[in-house]
Design a protein around this nucleic acid. Structure first.
Lengths: 223, 223
DNA sequence: AAAGTGTCGTTGCATTTGCAACAAAAGGAG
DNA sequence: CTCCTTTTGTTGCAAATGCAACGACACTTT
């Protein structure tokens, strides 16, 4: 297994190779590859299983009843499929995780960590503490998504999202990890309505874009 | 301090009084009362502080720029203001917590737990483990809100919310903790538009309601 | 009783949005 | 290069929505 990748992941950050190997055993780790579109963890599958992305990327999605998909977040290598955590009451996953491209991941049984098994594992409290940190971040991610998709108009939703991306990238020129359809699914709007609004905003000199590369313009001159 | 209330709270569940007192000291606990509308934790205040509700109720809200409020969730006695957790990078709270009625709470400094201070406290790992559990639940709450507010139409948003409430209450007749304006803010829609849609749905025999008391009707007979 | 306050339903209207269908552009496979 | 698939932009249209304004009702305060 790719220890070098794992060493850089957040979950195992700061552990040496011996410790990582021990932790992997304790978590029942197994590696797998996924094709684009394949589900790493389908919604409804038993919880207590999570995954650590090694390469590729994945979308955390929620599909309702009639096939409308809603993208919750995008997962990059080194990140954990946090939503898959569960503390027991409800035994099924609330979300699906789908590969956005060919992807490698390590599957982990977090259930063992959280029950009383494995109690003598010296890494246990450290892993739990790390999971807490990760979960707090994930919480913020979800809050950001709520802030975006809760705006009243498509324009406000888009600006809310783009502003944060600009802030995160430290520049008013940046690239986003979504294509149009995915961005629409993330913001919770219709794709064509999004395209239309983007055209208008470009015409008003609020933004400039090409594919998934964006520039936020300072003023809205109707020049 | 009301140990009886604290004993029933999730954070201190299963601890005896001596342990709770010790934990309270470790967390720098202090009690406070709030009037309706007062902020327990205003957005932007330093993180590392959280609160445990003793009585009353509070709304976790996010207010944007132009005063539009978005309700993230409602907090009941015994619950923790989870969003106030933070792991350091960003030092300010992403949300506000506002009393919905006269409310009592215990403020706690979780920062001490998460840094290396207090390491010899025997309750530390237990508290962290509990916080992990609570945070996982909070995560699900946020996912539920996302599921509701990400629906395309007001009707779908409302049905998504009401269906879950019916499921949670175990009956198709139930009471929700929001008034109209709060429900609109939770779903991310205009209040009057929500009222209008509710009228239509009642006329189509999909739902019946009076104030915040609802009944989900099985079929949509246009009888 | 009267005035004040907060909540809820209703309605007109301009605008936005979802939906469906189509065309243009980009990229991949042979 | 050519065919095929995917992605993106555009548009017409009906329906949904935000906004603002108003009135009804319940409850509290004086």
């Amino acid at each position: 297994m790719e220890l070098s990748l794992l060493k850089k992941s957040r979950l195992f950050q700061g552990m040496n190779e011996r410790e990582i190997v021990q932790a992997l055993g304790c978590l029942g780790a197994r590696e797998r590859r996924y094709d684009k579109g394949e589900f790493l963890l389908p919604a409804g599958s038993p919880a207590g299983e999570t995954g650590l992305l090694l390469s590729g990327s994945a979308l955390m999605i929620r599909e309702d009843y009639w096939g409308n998909r809603s993208i919750l977040s995008i997962i990059s290598p080194g990140e954990l499929l946090v939503e898959a955590f569960s503390n027991g009451n409800d035994r099924s996953l609330p979300v699906s995780v789908q590969a956005a491209e060919p992807t490698e991941a390590v599957l982990l049984s977090t259930g063992q960590l959280l029950t009383n098994r494995c109690d003598r594992c010296p890494l246990k409290s450290r892993l739990i503490r790390t999971m807490l940190d990760i979960l707090m971040d994930e919480n913020r991610k979800l809050l950001s998504k709520i802030e975006d998709s809760t705006q009243r108009s498509t324009r406000e939703k888009l600006m809310s999202y783009l502003s944060r991306q600009a802030l995160l990238s430290g520049s008013n020129v940046f690239t986003i990890p979504f294509n149009r359809q995915a961005l629409a699914d993330y913001l919770g709007v219709d794709r064509s309505a999004l395209s239309r609004e983007m055209s208008h905003m470009a015409r008003e000199n609020l933004i400039a874009y090409e594919r998934n590369h964006f520039t936020l313009l300072k003023d809205g001159d109707t020049a």
